[in-house]
Amino acid sequence: MIAWLLTHAASTRFAVVAGVFAVLLVLQLRMPRRGDHSAPGRYVRNLSLPLISAAIVYLLLPLTLVGLATLLAERQLGLFNLLDWPPLIELAITIIVFDLAIYWQHRAMHELPWLWRLHRLHHTDLDFELTLGLRFHPFEILFSLLCKALVIAALGAAPLAVLCCEILLAAFALFSHADIRIAKRWDQVLRRFVITPDWHRVHHSVHRAETDSNYGNLLSIWDRLFGSATEQPRDGHLGMRLGLDEFRDEASQRLRGMLMQPFLDATTPTGKNDKPHA
C-alpha cells in the first residue's frame, strides 16, 4: 500500500486535496461567515494560478519533494536516515519542523522587500474565501518548494512523511482561507492548537499591524511563541476590509496583473517603495 502511494504520490495528493476542497466548498456555500463570494471570473483567475505554477514546476524542477526524499533515503543522507527512530516519531517531528519552517518563511516574505514582491499577490485579493488558499504567484511556489527541499534534506525525511506533510499543509491552507462560520466556542478551542479561518482572516486585513501577524499555516503556537499573534481584528470580522489599498484597481485583479506582481513598483503598506512590509 505504501509503495503504491509513493509511486502515485502526485495523483494521491491531488485527489485528497481536491476532496478537501470539495467538502470546504460545500460548507462555504451552506454556512458562510461573511459571504465573500465575488464574480466567477475571480474564481477562474485564482484557480488558474496553481495550474500555471504546476506547469512551471514540472518544467524547471527535476524532482518532486517526495522524489527528493526517496533519493535521500536510497543514499542514506539526512538526520533520520542516520537514526533508527520509530516512523511515527519521525512523522511527528517532520510535520512540526515543516510547519515551523513555513512560519518563518511566511514571516520573511513580509519582512524582506524582494520576498514581499513574490508574496504580495496573495494579499491583493479583496475577498476571503476558499480559492484565496490557492492564490500564490508561481515564483513564490518555486521559492517555497526550495525551502521545503532544504528541510527535507536536513531531516532526511521519509518519503511517506513528506507526502503526509504536503497533503496536511495543503489542506490547512484551504481550510484557513475558507469562508466558513464556526461557532465561537469551537473556534476558541480549535485556535489554541491550529489555524482557523477567523484566526487567519486577520492576516489579510488592510491594517498593517494585523497583516503582519498570524503567519502560521497549521499550528497556532508559533505566532504565540514568537510574538506575532493577533486574536481579533480591530474592525470585527464582518466589518474589516481586506486586501492592499494600492492594488484595488481592476487591472491588478486580472490574471495578467496578478502574474506581473513581482515586477511592479508600488508603494507597499509601509509607505515606502519596495521596503519590507513589516
Rank of each mutant, 00 (worst) to 15 (best):
R13G: 08
A251M: 07
F128A: 01
D223E: 08
A69K: 00
D265Q: 12
D223H: 03
E90S: 14
N273T: 13
V66G: 00
L77G: 00
A153F: 10
R33M: 13
L6E: 04
I141K: 13
H137Q: 08
F226L: 14
A154M: 13
A149K: 09
R117E: 11
S213A: 15
R117A: 14
D36V: 07
G271T: 03
A73L: 06
W116L: 04
L51T: 05
Q232K: 15
G236S: 07
A55R: 03
F172E: 05
H203P: 08
A92W: 09
R241Q: 15
D274I: 02
A69W: 00
D179A: 08
L68N: 01
L112H: 10
G156L: 06
Q28I: 06
A266K: 12
I152R: 00
H237P: 00
H177A: 04
V20F: 09
G133K: 01
C147W: 12
M1Y: 13
E90R: 13
F80D: 01
Y43A: 11
Y43W: 14
S228C: 12
G41S: 10
D127K: 02
P138K: 01
L59P: 01
Q253C: 06
P276E: 10
G257W: 01
L225M: 15
L24E: 03
I89G: 12
Q232W: 11
G67L: 04
P138A: 06
T196K: 02
H177T: 07
R241E: 15
W116M: 05
I221N: 01
H123Y: 04
C147G: 11
I96W: 14
L27T: 03
D125A: 10
T94G: 11
R234D: 12
G271Y: 06
V26F: 11
L83Y: 04
H123R: 08
D198Y: 04
W116G: 00
R254D: 14
L163N: 03
L145C: 04
L59T: 10
E74V: 08
H8Q: 13
V44Y: 02
F98S: 10
T267M: 12
S213F: 02
A39N: 11
V26T: 11
H119Y: 10
D223V: 05
P262F: 03
P32N: 11
P40I: 05
S38A: 14
A178H: 03
R13A: 12
T64S: 15
R248N: 13
Q28H: 09
W116K: 05
S53K: 00
R256V: 15
L244C: 02
R248E: 13
R45G: 03
E74S: 12
L68Q: 04
W186T: 07
P262W: 03
L219F: 15
H110D: 04
R45T: 14
L242Q: 06
I102K: 00
M31W: 15
P159E: 05
I152E: 00
W85G: 07
L160C: 01
N81I: 03
E250K: 14
V66D: 00
D179N: 05
G156S: 09
G271L: 04
G239E: 12
L77R: 11
P113C: 10
G257M: 06
V20P: 01
R75K: 15
P86D: 08
